[in-house]
Amino acid sequence: MANQTQTPVPLDFQPLASPMAMEHVTIQYGNKVAVRDVSLLFAPKSITALIGPSGCGKTTLLTSLNRLTDLIPHCRVSGSVRLAELEIFDQRIDVIELRRRVGMIFQRPNPFPMSIRRNLELPLREHGLRDRHKLAEKVERTLTEVGLWTEVKDRLDRSALTLSGGQQQRLCLARALALNPEVILLDEPCSSLDPLSVAVIEDLLVRLRANCTIVVVTHNLAQARRIADSTAFLWADEAGGRLIEHRATKALFDSPRESLTAAFVTGRVG
């Protein structure tokens, strides 16, 4: 795949790129505390990486940003999470609209078991776009944005499951982008992909930064260094996961304030 040599396609939407902020967030599964008292600011038009050892609550923290924690029985979130001025854990808000504004990409690509076209059209229809021509136009444009159009334009009606892992993940990204999200959450989006697909996705994220707030959980420290503007380091002990340090990526890796961070980024712990 020679996507790196393609000229970047300008993105067709200019969403608000709202900031997200969490204050004193604690997340519990039953009696077990997964994340304790975390306050973080995700700046607009930037990429924030969440790093830390397995089980430190990175993914849990990420899923609280679009209230996917609602799906987990006995999961309780306290504290405040705001999307721009909206308090997202307010029971009165429209969760469905929240999730349109905050898109999410998962660790394993999860296209729906239906055609490529339908994978993109279904969420668009759900959110009110019914015009056939507009739908077709939108499908083409988002697929072009993720560099998938030339690869799939002749087989849009084939099952999305026939795509390779990297293509599936880009399709999922296209599906989320089609809804013009203000924030995009990514949960280790590259961990199940081959290096070439990883490069394509990273390239795409860097281009998306101009229009969105991006939060990415990653196991791969090198990836955080390559793409993230700022990086937050989490660590877990018996009392649950907590935030150790959140700074500009370069500063966090080159001159960490905390000794734990230094130990982690140099591979001595974790």
Binding site: I96, E97, R100, E126, H127, G128, L129, L179, N180
Partner: peptide, 8 residues
């Protein structure tokens, strides 16, 4: 993009 409930 507004959501709306159809009859179905």
């Amino acid at each position: 993009m507004a959501r709306f409930k159809t009859r179905t």
